[in-house]
Design a protein around this nucleic acid. Structure first.
Lengths: 241, 241
DNA sequence: TCAAAAGTGTTCCAGTTACACCCATGA
DNA sequence: TCATGGGTGTAACTGGAACACTTTTGA
């Protein structure tokens, strides 16, 4: 009796209670020209007109949060098979001028060369901007970006996530530049190479850089076999376990 | 013109769009009798009748997520000044039988002795259960617990969060037991003591255990001065930076 | 032959692990 | 005096940090 009342009360609460819109915002990281970049739009909403914003959308009623993030990525970039991980929820009262919108932040890692091939950048008005150039952003997106970058730095040290940002063939100097760009600090070349080679998850492809005005670097690719043995979750499931 | 339309479209989307209820669920950790425990309720909702559940509530329209978590803690335990950190959002479609409820998980660390003094346990029907005993839980709360425990383990290694779980005066064996309970693995006594003493954030209080049938252990307390120097954020702001 | 970046090993220090015995207390 | 857990140091190992010169290519 009392229990049934409790349940009814609870049902009513959910039915009648203030409900908020739920959105997903994606911090889409790319690595290009030795710099870490984020895909942004120009905000078209007061009072943030013209400021860079992340790519986001409201969550639909038939998709869970991961699916919403995947959909947004696909709609905005045409890319599937993306590495995505949830960062956290942001729910300040005043974070959205149109009302209460709680947003779930995700970060994504994509290969800029594949994205560029689809020619999606101009189609969707999305712009790659370097991390350093993003001083002011729309909504609380700067806060979201900072939290995402913080997480990315931790993840990059723990897991070989860099493979999600690089083209199929890459050189060790490129890889080191990527680390330096993400971690925002210089690394020792010899120590870096030692650490990478001990991981054993890259292999030479027998090619070299071309058209460079200096000694060309050897090119490497991810060693899928070794990767499967040590980090199978990175292949199977795009979401870090 | 086009922009204004866009904004109107966006407003309408937020106004009209499917909105979900947003809740906060708290994984309240406590340490007692050499075991890591979680504060739970008995679920009174089908189909989870009688299963242990976390303490949660819907988020109100005038509070942000952190405030909601703090309020839930206070209402359920009477404790203020709690250490809280967001874990992540959980938003599976079928996670709540009454409809779409996206929940934001937090974990909290409280001192069981203070909580017990308030006599809140019986008043609120909340029960301390050991981690090991929680095999099946209501909703997706087992998943939430696992994610929270995972985060706690990482945090405990990085920061002296254990001070949030221990009484004012504690012994080194107690502290080591806490680590072993959270990490679920045995630690070497001498190495453990070396590491703790090198941190320099605890000091002897000049007392010993009483009423133990063996050599009594020395009691320690947190060295607030050193803590302020090294981890001021743990005192100022309950949320990990 | 020069400029520019690629590539390569060794030494040192610090932090982690492994390990065994004596001590203080109450019964 | 015995049982129980508290308290202590050292040696080997491992991972990270510092560091400078030779090689390969295109211009």
């Amino acid at each position: 009796m009392e229990k049934a009342e409790n349940i009814n009360l609870h049902m009513r609460e959910i039915e009648d209670h203030f409900k908020a819109a739920i959105s997903v915002d994606c911090v889409i990281f790319g690595y290009d020209e030795s710099e870490l970049k984020v895909l942004t739009l120009d905000c078209n909403m007061d009072p943030y007109l013209g400021l860079p914003s992340l790519l986001g959308d409201l969550v639909k009623n038939d998709e869970n949060l991961d699916e919403a993030a995947t959909r947004i990525l696909y709609q905005r970039t045409g890319i599937t098979d993306v590495f995505l991980e949830q960062v956290k929820a942001f729910g300040e009262l005043d974070r959205h001028p149109m009302g209460r919108v709680v947003t779930i932040a995700y970060y994504a890692l994509i290969k800029v060369d594949e994205y560029g091939q689809n020619g999606m950048e101009s189609k969707h008005n999305a712009k790659w901007r370097t991390i350093g150039s993003l001083k002011e952003m729309a909504f609380d997106h700067k806060k979201i970006l900072n939290a995402s970058l913080h997480l990315l730095r931790k993840r990059l040290i723990e897991y070989p996530l860099w493979m999600k940002l690089l083209p199929e063939h890459f050189s060790l100097p490129e890889l080191q530049n990527l680390f330096e760009a993400v971690l925002a600090k210089p690394l020792d070349k010899r120590n870096f190479r030692k650490k990478i080679s001990k991981l054993g998850i890259i292999k030479e492809v027998g090619k070299k850089q071309e058209d460079v005005p200096h000694r060309p670097a050897k090119l490497y690719a991810v060693n899928e076999k070794k990767l499967r043995e040590d980090y199978s979750f990175l292949l199977k499931n795009p979401f870090v376990s």
